[in-house]
């Protein structure tokens, strides 16, 4: 079978979401939107709560595992991962060169410049504590990147809105949020088309230095802004023509059944949050609790 034949029999695998093409079906896609939101909140809060390396690496492992189990095609999101990994690396570098954590060992200490009159300057001061904090922040950011990515790929826009309304967000706020998400998708489509239009005039985005490339992207701002303004005007007219009001409330239409997998996921990620909290702030209590638990059910 040649390549062309292979192409023609492959079914369509992905459907369009706001930010990414998302898998058509997977256990993660079928989770109740509220549960998905809870997982993101649980992992994110856990990552912020802890400053223990072993815990944050475990959280990263759990998140990556979640992405793999959700059968997310990495080829679809690799650019996004690379961009955000770049951001995490940026955070690492900034911490390395601009923070002054006092540590037990000093690896590097150098004044780049110093202005005596104002007693101010830039000193690169790298200690073991600097490396530890910079690395912790790097991994923490990566946890956030992976869990956000997982959420956006397995959750469709209407599910996000549903979850927000279920959490009690006011109609106006949830509607504005949904509309802004929708605009992001249209904005992205415009971005791609404007970029193609510029390419059709001979602009190459992969040539030139950073400044030249930024200038090329800068030119796109004008049509993008104008298109956005026109769209906002059209949206406003359309909702006014349908009598838009934020005054009355409606019963939320529940399209989502609650499954055993939802209960299990809530329990698992609720436990993760509790364990991380206790391990960070009440480690002795956690240890004694686990000890008792193991005592009741001794191993072996």
């Amino acid at each position: 079978m040649n390549n062309a034949e292979t192409l023609s029999i492959e079914p369509k695998k992905y459907v369009r979401g706001y930010f990414f093409y998302t898998t058509e079906d997977s256990p993660a896609r079928r989770l109740n939107p509220l549960v998905k939101l809870f997982i993101v909140i649980s992992i994110s809060i856990s990552a912020f709560l802890t400053d223990r390396f072993e815990i944050i690496l475990s959280l990263l492992a759990v998140t990556v595992l979640l992405v793999i189990l959700s059968r997310i095609p990495l080829s679809m999101v690799k650019k996004f991962i690379l961009a955000l990994s770049g951001m995490a690396t940026g955070i690492f570098i900034i911490n390395l060169f601009f923070s002054h954590y006092t540590g037990s060992k000093v690896y590097f200490d150098f004044w780049v410049f110093y202005i005596p009159y104002v007693n101010w300057g830039w000193r690169i001061y790298i200690t073991d504590a600097t490396l530890w904090w910079a690395s912790l922040l790097f991994v923490r950011t990566m946890v956030m990147v992976w869990i956000s990515l997982w959420f956006l790929v397995v959750t469709r826009d209407r599910d996000i809105l549903y979850a927000l309304r279920r959490l009690g967000f006011p109609r106006g706020a949830a509607f504005a949020f949904a509309l802004s998400l929708r605009s992001v998708s249209m904005f992205y489509e415009d971005f791609v088309t404007v970029m193609e239009a510029m390419k059709s005039k001979g602009v190459s985005f992969s040539e030139g230095g950073i400044i030249t490339r930024l200038k090329k992207y800068g030119r796109m701002a004008f049509p993008m802004v104008l298109l956005a303004v026109r769209r906002i005007e059209e949206f406003t007219r359309a909702i006014e023509a349908r009598g838009f009001s934020i005054k009355c409330k409606r019963k939320l239409y529940n399209k989502y059944a609650w499954s055993k997998l939802d209960s299990l996921s809530m329990l698992t990620f609720g436990l993760i949050l509790i364990i991380v909290f206790l391990y960070q702030y009440y480690p002795l209590f956690l240890m004694s609790f686990l000890g008792r638990l193991l005592g009741v059910f001794p191993l072996g």
């Binding site: 404007v194 239009a197 510029m198 059709s200 005039k201 298109l227």
Partner: peptide, 11 residues
Amino acid sequence: SFQNPDHQLFL
């Protein structure tokens, strides 16, 4: 030349 001229004009 694209369908919507607004995608194509930026100067």
